[in-house]
């Protein structure tokens, strides 16, 4: 996948059993786009967490829906777009916990922000959600952490 070429698009049922398919695709696409081994691992984890959030929050565990994931090599870097047709996500409703706070849940967003420089919900999408995740080219983990 080179810059500007057709993206890779996959659509999965909103059942957690298909998250392994998303992880495999995310890892391979990130590696092909030159994100490096560690970067590809972080991206795989982040995309998995984002899709898990779609199942939990947008679809409220309805396993009969679909999630579409697009992987793209852009001038900015590696971009992942995750679309659903579920309830509008309110970033404030998604449980986030401080890393120092020890309790179950609330870690997913941290993994997403660890892997990507920008995490944006496209407000132009009327029904459902479109989450756009971008990892800039030639940025390492430390650089991403510094921006937060």
């Amino acid at each position: 996948m080179a810059i500007g070429t057709n993206p890779i698009v996959i659509t999965i049922p909103s059942h957690p059993r298909y998250l392994s398919v998303v992880r495999a695709a995310a890892h391979l696409a990130a590696e092909i786009c030159g994100m490096g081994t560690s970067g590809a691992e972080d991206i795989k984890h982040a995309v998995d967490e984002a899709c898990s959030n779609v199942i939990k929050y947008a679809y409220k565990c309805d396993i009969t829906r679909t999630i579409t994931i697009k992987f793209e090599d852009t001038l900015k870097g590696f971009q992942v777009t995750i679309e659903d047709s579920g309830c509008k996500a309110n970033i404030d409703d998604i449980k986030i916990r401080e890393l120092d706070e020890v309790r179950p849940g609330g870690l997913g967003i941290h993994f997403i922000k660890k892997a990507f420089n920008t995490v944006v919900f496209d407000k132009k999408k009327r029904n459902g959600n479109r989450l756009i995740l971008t990892r800039y080219r030639n940025t390492d983990e430390a650089a991403i952490s510094k921006q937060k």
């Binding site: 992880r23 984890h45 998995d48 967490e49 898990s52 020890v102 309790r103 179950p104 849940g105 609330g106 870690l107 997913g108 993994f111």
Partner: peptide, 16 residues
């Protein structure tokens, strides 16, 4: 080979 936040949450819950 892999653990996500739900797996971590499971261990934290059991630990508590």
């Amino acid at each position: 080979r892999y653990i996500d936040s739900s797996g971590i949450a499971t261990f934290v819950e059991a630990l508590k």
